[in-house]
Amino acid sequence: MLNKYHFLVALIIAIWLTFFLILIAPFDIAELSILNRIQIMPVYGIISFFGYMILVPLENWIYKKSDKSSFYKEIFIITLFNILVLIGCYIYYKSEIVNGMYSFIKFTLEVYYPTFFILLPIIIFARWFINKKVINKNSKKITLKGDNKLDILQINNEDLVCVSSADNYVDVYYLMNGILNKKLLRTTLKNIESQFPELIKIHRSHLINPIHFMEWKNSNTISLTQKEVPVSKNYKKKILAMYHSSLKTNDSPQIQ
Rank of each mutant, 00 (worst) to 15 (best):
I118H: 10
K133S: 15
I29F: 03
V43W: 07
I208T: 00
A166Y: 12
P114V: 04
P26K: 12
V56R: 04
P42M: 04
I40W: 03
T115W: 03
T249Q: 11
K68E: 07
M176D: 14
H212L: 06
L80F: 11
Q226K: 10
F76Q: 06
G88S: 13
P121C: 11
W61G: 09
I15K: 02
I75E: 12
K217C: 01
I40N: 06
L180E: 05
N36S: 15
I192F: 02
V172C: 02
S70L: 09
I78A: 06
N138Q: 13
S223R: 09
H6I: 04
Y93H: 05
R127L: 11
F129V: 09
Q195R: 12
D251V: 08
I12S: 08
P114L: 03
Y93S: 01
N220M: 10
R186Y: 11
E59L: 00
L175Y: 02
N60H: 14
D171P: 00
Q195N: 13
N234P: 04
P42S: 07
L153M: 08
Y52R: 02
S70R: 08
K236C: 04
P42E: 08
A10D: 02
W216F: 10
K132S: 15
I38N: 15
S246T: 04
N234F: 12
V229A: 07
Y5D: 02
A10F: 01
K94M: 06
L2T: 06
L150F: 12
M101R: 15
A25G: 09
T143G: 05
E110G: 13
P26Y: 05
L58Q: 07
V231M: 07
Y63N: 07
L55E: 00
N148P: 01
V229Y: 00
K141T: 10
A14Y: 00
K64V: 08
T249I: 11
E215K: 14
N220V: 10
V9T: 03
L17P: 00
F20T: 08
I13H: 00
G88W: 05
K237R: 15
I222K: 01
T108S: 13
K233D: 08
L144M: 15
S103W: 07
Y93T: 02
N177P: 03
K145C: 10
P26T: 06
